[in-house]
Each structure stands twice: as C-alpha cells, then as structure tokens.
Design a protein around this nucleic acid. Structure first.
Length: 214
DNA sequence: CGTCCGATGAACT
DNA sequence: GTTCATCGGACGT
C-alpha cells in the first residue's frame, strides 16, 4: 500500500463526498472503505490512519445491529440519518466505537471501523494511548483506534464529508484488490444467532494492524 | 428508579 | 487462557 502523507490540503481535496455514502449496498461500501484515510483534528492535533479492518451492520434484519427491527432510541437515532455521518457509542462502559452511517435516510446501515494503520500524527497517538513506542496495538481494535485518534461520544453524528468537521474520511489513492480482502464472521455478537455467522467483517490481507488470522 | 449487560482491551498467569 | 475494569442505554417496575 502507498502510505505517503499528502498533507491536510490533499486530504481536503480528496474528501469523500456525501453521495459516496448513499449506496444501499453496505457490503460493497464496506470493502470500498478499506484503504481510505480516516483523519481527525482535535486541539490542533492532526492524526490520520488508513482503514484496514471493517464490519458491516445492516438493520432492520441484522440481529447484531443496535437498530435491529428498526428500533429507534436516543442512541440509535443517528444510524437512521442520511449516510455520511459518524455513529459513536460507548461499549462495555470503557471503549468508544466509531461507525460510519451509510445508505439513504431512515435506512439504519452502519460500518464499524475496527482497525487503522497510522500514517500521520503518531506522536499524538502515542500520547493518547500512553505508549512509548509505535507498535501495531496503537490502532489495532475498534476501542484502540478511537483512543489514538481522540474520538469519543462527542464525535457522534458528525458529517464526515464536511471539510470543516473534526473527523473526515478521504480517498488516499489506494485500491485494495478483491484477493487482498479477507472476509470472516463478526466477533462479539454471538447473541445474534445466525446473524453472527455472516462474513461481514473485512480486513486487508497480511496487514500488521488487523487482527491475527487463525 | 433498579437491574442487567454489552459490536472490548489490557494485564495478568 | 482468564479475569476484570467500568458505565450508559434499554427496559421493566
């Protein structure tokens, strides 16, 4: 993968449009997000990473989704937004998990970002993670990457296609070939019965920042 | 208001 | 492999 950091201007120029997120085909979008650049700007700290692992959630049918059966609550309401905004929630009382809402308004599809490969602002990431050295655990796992990038629940419902947002996603000129993508079942959703078996977790083959294959 | 528990990570052994 | 930190959301009373 080409990991050249083109700077903030380049990011703004290549920011993904709102239309990008509107597709009804969340699985295609899920694969397409691999290789894209997730960028945050908090307190003047610019941090960015390449998305290398994702998971799709498809309400209303998907039992593993918070919006299963089109359940609308104060929390899940964000997922019913028009695609292109963030959905951030607290998991296990400790971890903030970052999702990308996709599809038209009132279709509660979302993509959980499970891992990124750091590309810029690693010094800020190390600081936020209380690490001394840059190891893959810095942004491996959904709870870890949000901490490294400074994302918490205050980043819920942010427009990811708006250049003025503190969290944005841009094209980085990277294309992940189909044979480089490994599909597997989602983890931590055993309660969802048969839906837990759907191979809706995608990751870049042999990437050090994704979970280790069995 | 009380209870239950989760789309996890880290530090143990 | 095992344990545990830790708290908001969802729902029932």
């Amino acid at each position: 993968m080409n990991l050249i950091w083109g700077g903030e201007d380049q990011v703004i120029k290549n920011i993904l449009s709102e239309e990008y997120y509107q597709s009804h085909d969340v699985l295609s979008l899920n694969k397409s997000l691999l290789g894209k650049l997730l960028v945050t700007r908090f307190d003047g700290k610019l941090t960015a990473g390449i998305i290398v692992e994702t998971e799709a959630y498809m309400a209303p049918d998907d039992k593993a989704s918070h919006a299963y059966g089109n359940r609308r609550t104060a929390r899940t309401e964000t997922m019913f937004s028009r695609g292109g905004v963030s959905y951030v929630y607290l998991c296990y009382g400790i971890h903030h998990l970052f999702n990308v809402v996709t599809g038209p308004k009132d279709v509660a599809h979302a993509i959980l970002i499970r891992a990124v490969q750091p590309i810029h602002g690693i010094e800020w990431m190390l600081e936020r993670r209380n690490l001394l050295h840059n190891k893959p655990i810095i942004t491996k796992g959904p709870g870890s990457l949000t901490k490294a990038l400074g994302i918490d629940r205050s980043s819920n419902a942010i427009a990811l296609h708006d250049p003025t947002s503190p969290v944005i996603i841009a094209d980085h000129g990277i294309t992940i070939d189909e044979q480089e993508i490994i599909a597997s079942p989602r983890v931590g959703v055993s309660y969802a019965a048969e839906w837990a078996l759907k191979p809706w977790r995608f990751r870049v083959k042999n990437n050090l920042w994704t979970s280790t294959p069995k």
